[in-house]
Amino acid sequence: MIQTKQDFFTAVKERRSYYAISKESDISDQQIEELLANAIKYAPTSFNSQSGRVVLLLGENHDKLWNITEAALREIVPEENFGPTAQKMEGFRKGYGTVLFFEDLSVVKSLQEQFPTYADKFPDYSLQSSGMLQYIVWTALEIEGFGASLQHYQPLIDEAVQKIWGIPSDWKLLAQMPFGKPTAHPGEKEFQSIKERFKVFK
């Protein structure tokens, strides 16, 4: 297991959406791969389905993803309004890498066939499992000194991603997480009252 620099709840508190990131890393690519492998292995899944799939893009592959995304967005965003979108894409390209999160629909379909009583619930369970995997990865990246954000440019980029990186057709793209060393901190975050969000009955 990789050694961490923060305790878990410190990372939970510090984890934010970072958009100002750089192509720097305090750990090796091998350590990043190990971090992701552990997250995939140990993230909880319903019925132990293990349906989560992850693709790590580094170097030119990372840049290529955001070039593809920018090109797809240019097809739907008017040129006169494209300035902020172009800046956002450039911000993502400045990162060190991107994590792509998928769910294997063949696993979901198999569970639906095996357990027809829960057939309509398995897509929901799949999304819940993916959300937990995404959060584990996000928090683990925070622990290692990275800033990250969660993006959703599917289905605009699905076909290109599948073709360029040879992604199986049963893998459904759910999110993209660009990450890199933070170059600026996000602003203060406002919180709703815990009393309005949390009930205890003894």
Rank of each mutant, 00 (worst) to 15 (best):
A184W: 01
D170A: 15
L65F: 13
Q31C: 03
T69P: 03
G97Y: 02
L56A: 09
M177A: 06
G83E: 11
F198A: 07
P116V: 09
Q151R: 08
E79G: 07
L73G: 01
S149D: 03
R197G: 03
L150C: 01
V200C: 05
I68E: 10
R15H: 09
F102N: 02
R93A: 01
V200M: 14
R53M: 09
E113Y: 12
P44A: 06
S149A: 09
W171P: 00
K5A: 11
L35W: 02
G166F: 01
G59A: 06
G52L: 00
E90K: 15
Q114H: 13
D158C: 08
G91M: 02
Y118S: 13
E159R: 05
I194H: 07
K88S: 10
P182Y: 05
I194W: 07
F122K: 00
F102Q: 02
K181I: 02
M89F: 10
E79N: 08
A160G: 02
F9N: 10
R93D: 00
Q134K: 02
A72Q: 15
M1L: 08
H152K: 04
R16T: 09
Y18C: 05
F82Q: 04
Q162L: 03
E142F: 02
G180R: 00
A20L: 02
F102T: 08
E113K: 15
S22C: 07
G147F: 00
T4K: 13
F179D: 01
V12T: 09
A71P: 01
S169R: 09
Q176F: 13
N48L: 08
A148M: 02
D7Y: 05
F146T: 00
